[in-house]
Design a protein around this nucleic acid. Structure first.
Lengths: 152, 152
DNA sequence: GGCTAATCGTTAGAGGTCTAACGTTTGTCT
DNA sequence: AGACAAACGTTAGACCTCTAACGATTAGCC
């Protein structure tokens, strides 16, 4: 099996399982990624938030629409620049965040079973090599993704 | 960054790049996977073809509809069992297959640059560990995916 | 042979994603 | 101040994917 297909398949298996775990806790992968990004640091605008999550702005708009309708967050125009939305989490969003964080850390522990730190370092490096081998100039910067355990 | 997210991100980068390479050759990732599966061996029915590709039957129907409309393949009811479709590639499908195979092998070479056989074996094993850690009983069997260079 | 359960491919609807284009607002230059 | 380009979030449409339900056909049992 070509390594690209092995990668795609295992990623699909893992992502679906993660999404199922988050769904059982009342959320979804996109809503988890949005909540944890909001929780971890302020973002200058939605475009920056979308970049942190790894999706396009239009996709983020759709998710934010759903989450605002569900009462998880609110969007307000920034008085200093009316093109910009400030996105803030509601109390309900806060509660969902805590439930999803639990699910995410449990899932991460299960996912890493049988792999030690050396394995994970090697895996991360090789994944980076693969992505770097095919990335165009507009590659993703080595953004430090927030660790669920560090978000408070 | 949690390993699950690193996996999802690099898989997304690689898959998009592969899809772009196939698009430049006149195809797409799903059409490539369908053509190479048809080329490699006969499948008892569409469900088996879908499983070999790693998608659901409904998804395959949509792709086959598009590819049959484009003149790449035809579906005929099996006289021995009229629930079953036999899917066969047309000459046009054959020509597209050869173009996409070139693109796929070029892409695979680029993707593996800087990784030796030991690296790739370790990577494949670790990807399998991750998927195995989260898979349910209905896990994917270790199906041998066709190698583009072996398809004739 | 008749009945029922299983199989097969399809349809309908929903979720997530992307690109291109749009209207509004701000920044820059003269 | 005015004109134009850039930035921002949104809209519309298309692609890929899945689940659930459906109609047609076959297999198995009595």
């Amino acid at each position: 099996m070509p390594i690209g297909l092995a990668l795609a398949r295992s990623a699909k298996t893992v992502s679906r399982a993660f999404d199922d775990a988050l769904a059982a806790a009342g959320g979804s992968l996109p809503s988890w990624l949005i909540l944890i990004s909001l929780k971890t640091r302020a973002h200058a605008n939605q475009r920056e938030l979308a970049a942190a999550i790894g999706i396009q702005g239009a996709t983020l708009t759709h998710h934010l629409n759903a989450m605002e309708s569900a009462g998880l967050l609110v969007r307000r125009r920034d008085p200093a620049n009316r093109r910009v939305h400030q996105v803030t989490m509601t109390d309900e969003g806060e509660r969902l965040f805590h439930r999803l964080r639990r699910a995410a850390t449990d899932f991460d522990r299960q996912l890493r079973a049988g792999l030690d730190d050396g394995d994970l370092d090697a895996l991360t490096r090789m994944l980076g090599t693969l992505a770097g081998n095919v990335a165009t100039e507009a590659a993703d910067p080595t953004d430090t993704f927030p660790n669920p355990a560090a978000a408070h």
